[in-house]
């Protein structure tokens, strides 16, 4: 029931969150991450996301497994969009279903923080006057 998916199509947030609603759950926390127009004073025209897809799928699954060990949650659904995204379009949805909301909020925050650090996906910001591949902080990546 858990899933981590990559897609170039627009993401339907409700359908993602409703795919993980088991009967023992009482709360689903869903993060809808979307494209911001202004970063400080700079205006973004659009974003482009690129992934190392087979590794991104593996790293995404690892995050889900770890979250289910560390938090009292039942199911996790993550969909990340790739390709060109316009302002306001959803780039990522993370839905965490749990018996009680507190663990779902905590797990959702942990999942987005870890995804930004470990899952091999990159974001290019395209501005009116140039473009830049954004670089994360990559602190303490676990290596084999």
């Amino acid at each position: 029931m858990d899933f981590f998916e990559l897609t170039t199509d627009p993401i339907d947030i409700t359908s993602v969150s409703r795919r993980v609603v088991p009967l023992e759950c009482g709360a689903t926390v869903t993060l809808d991450g979307y494209v911001r127009k202004f970063t400080k004073d700079r205006e973004t025209l659009h974003l482009v996301y690129e992934a190392y897809e087979p590794m991104a799928l593996k790293e995404g699954q690892k995050l889900i497994e770890q979250a289910k060990k560390d938090f009292e949650i039942s199911h996790v659904a993550i969909v990340h969009r790739l390709g060109k995204l316009e302002i306001g379009e959803t780039s990522i949805v993370i839905s965490v279903a749990a018996p009680h909301r507190k663990a779902a909020f905590a797990a959702c925050e942990w999942l987005i923080r870890e995804l930004k650090r470990t899952v091999p996906i990159w974001k290019k910001e395209v501005f009116a006057d140039g473009e830049v591949w954004v670089e994360g902080d990559a602190a303490d990546i676990k290596t084999a």
Partner: peptide, 21 residues
């Protein structure tokens, strides 16, 4: 890690710190 031994046929990926989300 940087000291990991490589083998014939390995597929390496070299990239800057990730920035998804």
């Amino acid at each position: 890690g940087e000291n990991t031994r490589l083998s014939n046929g390995d597929q390496l990926a070299v990239f800057t710190p990730v920035s998804g989300g």
